[in-house]
Design a protein around this nucleic acid. Structure first.
Lengths: 161, 161
DNA sequence: GGAGTGATACTCGGATATCTGGTGTCCGAGTTTTCGCGG
DNA sequence: CCGCGAAAACTCGGACACCAGATATCCGAGTATCACTCC
């Protein structure tokens, strides 16, 4: 899985802390997380295309959540960045080789495909069950006061300007 | 995910149909599935290393299941080929950037990491719930008589020699 | 003082190089079979 | 007919090229801001 998923999720969490309709440019998000700005921008664009983020160009612009954090699931972010396709791709291997038969003989998806699909569904269900709002709550609960203080101060300073 | 996973699972299913302690060489398995023999061999070797398959060198040798099909889970095969690592890799992004703090401040794994881990567990649980024996049963139930007949005949011919 | 206007600085967005891991292939080491030979 | 032995054929196993997708980067198009000017 792409590293961008991790970045995208952490960015979403940070954006969830923003007040009102405030936005944060890609450069600031990259600075906060210590990652390459240009590359992070690529993933933020993908999230914007997917309707998870909203982008505002020009001075004072940047990215913000397109919906309330409670209505953005982790799966939304993952699919925005890694694409909606399942990790397992059935190449219909059963139709090849000496036992290949007419297409009409294969009405049901093959057993391997169904099994992998079921697992993929379970994975997606799990990711769908957690929202960005849940993540922020966890972060607030888990993080030490020192870290939270630093984060809050950084945000104030950046937004203040 | 690697295409080899699909190949490995189908090979395991085919091997489950073999009688007694019979084995099938990589070349035959590749021929049956219509895939490159040399590359399939690579994955079969991985499965053998992982203890899912047993290999016998020399004439009349080949691969066979190392355990009864009912004791080999789909997860066993997947992990043998794709490795046991989770798809999501936490790079501890939270410790970077301007809010970075002493390592002692981060006792609990970060919320994003936990969420992805939980989804990965659900995925693995699902794959663990299905065995190769289950797959063979599904295949027998689903496949048309024509295909099953062809497969049986091919197997007899190959084993007969 | 207020509105208009131009310049400015900042932002996103897509097009462009680079590189690691999957994809594909090959040949050598080792084992089993088998064929021939001798008893 | 049976046992022995050497050769042969077959198998796996790991080492070697190749290519697509992820990684990383840049510059151009467009917009909001802001300062300045004029009324």
């Amino acid at each position: 899985m792409s590293d961008g998923v991790e970045w995208g999720l952490h960015c979403a969490v940070l954006l969830a802390f923003l007040p009102g309709g405030a936005a944060l440019p890609a450069g600031r998000l990259a600075e906060y997380h210590g990652v390459p700005a240009a590359y992070l921008a690529k993933h933020l664009q993908a999230m914007a295309r997917a309707g998870v983020l909203e982008s505002r160009p020009g001075a004072g612009g940047g990215y913000r959540l397109a919906r309330p954090a409670s209505e953005i699931t982790v799966l939304d972010v993952v699919e925005a960045i890694d694409g909606p396709d399942s990790a397992f791709r059935c190449s219909e291997i059963r139709r090849r080789g000496p036992t290949a038969s007419a297409a009409a003989e294969y009405r049901v998806p093959c057993a391997v495909h169904r099994t992998m699909q079921r697992a993929d569904d379970a994975w997606r269900d799990s990711l769908r069950a957690t929202t960005v709002a849940d993540l922020t709550e966890m972060v607030v609960t888990d993080a030490s006061d020192v870290v939270l203080r630093k984060g809050g101060r950084w945000l104030e300073e950046v937004l203040g300007r």
